[in-house]
Simulated scan of single mutants.
Amino acid sequence: MLNIADTLYRWCRENRPFALATVVQVSGSAPLPPGTALAVDTTGAAVGSISGGCVEGAVYELCRQVLEPGEPPVRSRFGYSDDDAFAVGLTCGGELEVLVQRIDPADQPHLTAALEKVQAGLPVAVAQVIDGPQHLVGRTLSVLGGGSAYDGTLGNRQQDRAAASQVRGLLRAGRTARVEVGGDADTCPEKLTLLVHTHAASPRMLIFGAVDFAAALSQAGRFLGYHVTVCDARPVFATAERFPHAHEVVADWPHRYLEATEVDARTVICVLTHDAKFDIPLLRLALGLPVGYIGAMGSRRTHDHRLERLREAGVPEEHLACLHSPIGLDLGAHTPEETAISITAEIIAHTNNGTGLPLSRVPGPIHGSAPMARVPSPAALLAA
């Protein structure tokens, strides 16, 4: 639902009831992930999309039906129609399950507050009951980032506390996912399946090296939703005027800035300096941090020399295996803009467990639901 938070927030502030259709499960080559939503208000106005167009009409009619007073939530499954690919179904070959429910803002004031936090860019998560006793399906509970407070209820205090605990973990990771709570006869007798919608702070992209490639990469990173920082030890090059698309530009030694800044499992680090006096202390530190991606620019000869220097600096082989160098995918890139696409393509593939191969050469669904094995992060290796 958070994909249409701006409109839902306006409807809630106007105390306008609406029907909310949420993708709660996908399989095969479904076009949009769980948590994506479409909403219809009492005037018939619609916002959002759940399938890229192929089942929107049928879901819209379900929304109109559920908007009638007293109508319970409805779950419906849509899949490919062998008899008629243009019938109500997913012509892409996948399946998705949708929960359609009426939302009355007056009954769930905490939802308005959660949507307001999203509008303000603050971390928040909303847990939605998608399976369980009929009278609980559709209930929501919201959790704010940075604390233990929650609002709303899923049925009873024990279930609320159990749900809030799991939701906080997903919020810290910035993940939207299904979780189960309850089923314990002593504490939470009713088993519930929740879909947890999360809105976390933007992931960080740290670009080291105030070069032309960094200017193009900062623009691409911002387009992808990263909070972009460009850092260089040379103040004459590290200026906001040279990097208008970066959220911040820092003049400091790269390793010193990295040591003092906050990173997490979604952070990507791109080292574009290819200068040993900057690269080695920076990468020695970075390769021991729990970040999502580390890449370094340079030729294969530069890469080989860099590995030798890092080994001499005591970096273990299992950490070196996490370094993407030379940085980027082989797209034949030459210009800074093409190189930025090459780098961000590798980041996307690594983050989503993609192969980086042309889709025409990859068998199976385009939108695969089962993640592939990936190289473990430095944090995971340290914990092993």
Rank of each mutant, 00 (worst) to 15 (best):
G48K: 04
G48I: 00
I50M: 09
S51Y: 10
G52T: 06
C54D: 09
Y60I: 05
E61V: 12
C63M: 10
C63T: 11
R64Y: 08
R64M: 13
R64G: 14
R64P: 10
Q65G: 10
Q65S: 13
L67V: 02
P69F: 01
V74N: 03
V74M: 08
S76Q: 15
S81A: 11
S81L: 07
D82Y: 13
D83L: 10
D84H: 10
V88Y: 12
T91H: 14
C92H: 04
G94Y: 02
G94H: 03
E95A: 13
L96I: 02
E97T: 15
V98E: 05
L99T: 08
V100T: 13
P105D: 14
A106H: 08
A106M: 07
H110W: 15
H110K: 05
A113V: 13
A114R: 00
L115V: 02
A120W: 10
G121E: 04
A125N: 04
A127Y: 11
Q128T: 13
V129I: 06
V129E: 01
I130R: 05
D131R: 06
P133E: 13
P133N: 12
T140D: 12
L141R: 12
Y150V: 07
G152C: 03
N156T: 00
Q159T: 14
D160E: 12
A162N: 08
A162I: 07
A162V: 07
A164K: 01
Q166M: 10
V167A: 02
V167Y: 01
R168H: 07
L170T: 01
R172C: 07
T176W: 10
T176G: 09
R178C: 14
V179G: 08
V181T: 11
V181N: 02
V181A: 01
G182I: 11
G183W: 11
D184I: 06
A185Y: 08
A185K: 13
D186T: 14
